[in-house]
Design a protein around this nucleic acid. Structure first.
Lengths: 196, 196
DNA sequence: TAATTAATTGAACGATCATTTAATTAATGG
DNA sequence: CCATTAATTAAATGATCGTTCAATTAATTA
């Protein structure tokens, strides 16, 4: 009825993240109770408050680290400084491969924005905007060099991002198509849609 | 403490649909209580059960009528029996115009699938599959006539549907771009991505 | 207008919700 | 090994959840 033998704060913190992520992704934030998370972690509900002040804070932490990881991974990539169509291909492959391996993070980051209170919402939305800007910059460059025939970089960026992120709604690993094959097909469609 | 003056079952039923739709779309199914719906309708919680046996049933009804409306509207349209690229253009314009005018229905139909219990899920999923099949048939026809260069009709259909439905995540009426302009840009991108 | 049916209320049901707190025990550092 | 700190439990808080039901009144039908 007190501290458990073998207990470790860092391990419990990690377990809370993992279990919350899985539960939020499959049931939705509101449908998951602190008791469900506690059960999955193997701990009493009260123990969760040693790690997060509120349930809302768990969600914000998950979404923040997903968006930050996404941005940092892009930024530490070696950027091909070639033609705009090469940059676009690199972006498509990066987006698909990063997202396809993190279905739960992607799901909650795109679906639970409405569950965020104003403060958290603004923080996450700002990170999202920064990522959108990465693609828009590529499209702008291609448009000004007349490599892309796109009329509007913003609309094209929204369309491409929706298309790419949509992979997560139907892809299941071990299916008919390999990840590489899927990337190839999306690269082809995106490049053609941009006019090259 | 009983039947209210001027009360009418059909009007209350309609109000329950409208208010549930708006509340589910902005907060999510699980985050909306029967008391919130009752308040919005202007009625006591118990009255809702004259119209729906469970909260779940409200959601299923909303999703079913959205998907049925979508399929029926497509089916009663005059089908252009021309070239595959004309059929594809017609589909793109239809999808965007139907969805852009029904943001709440679209939002819950795509986001609350996980809130459905097995029976309702299968019913709604079947309707979704039928709609996907409409686009796949167009792509198949274009591929076999060698008008489209797409490698895989299924993947292309998923990609195109994600792209089109994504309009709802950023479009706000009264903004910089007219609906017609948006349709034009998406038609151009989709046709180019298909190789024509 | 009398009888019937439709619509709604108000109160209650037990269950579950997020969160707080004091007590307790294990791990850690000197 | 002893003092301190970290981790956890058990129990309780008041609020809210979906749902049920008997009583009541308005609209409708005959």
């Amino acid at each position: 009825m007190a501290r458990k033998s073998g207990s470790s704060g860092t391990l419990t913190a990690k377990a809370i993240r993992q279990q919350s992520l899985a539960l939020f992704a499959s049931h939705g934030f509101s449908a998951v109770s602190m008791r469900m998370i506690a059960d999955a972690v193997g701990v009493q509900p009260g123990a969760l408050y040693q790690y997060h002040p509120t349930k809302q804070n768990i969600l914000v932490d998950l979404m923040r680290s997903h968006m930050q990881g996404l941005l940092e991974t892009w930024n530490t990539q070696e950027i091909i400084n070639g033609a705009p169509e090469q940059a676009l291909e690199q972006f498509v492959r990066f987006h698909i491969s990063y997202h396809i391996t993190r279905p739960d993070e992607v799901f909650i980051s795109y679906m639970e924005l409405r569950s965020l209170e104003p403060e958290g919402f603004q923080e996450i939305e700002a990170l999202r905007k920064r990522y959108e800007q990465v693609l828009k910059a590529i499209l702008d460059e291609g448009i000004s060099r007349k490599v892309f025939v796109l009329e509007d970089a913003h609309v094209a960026a929204m369309a491409i991002l929706s298309m790419l992120t949509g992979v997560n709604t139907w892809f299941r690993s071990g299916g008919r198509l390999s990840q590489e094959k899927i990337e190839d097909m999306y690269v082809a469609m995106v490049l053609r849609s941009s006019g090259c």
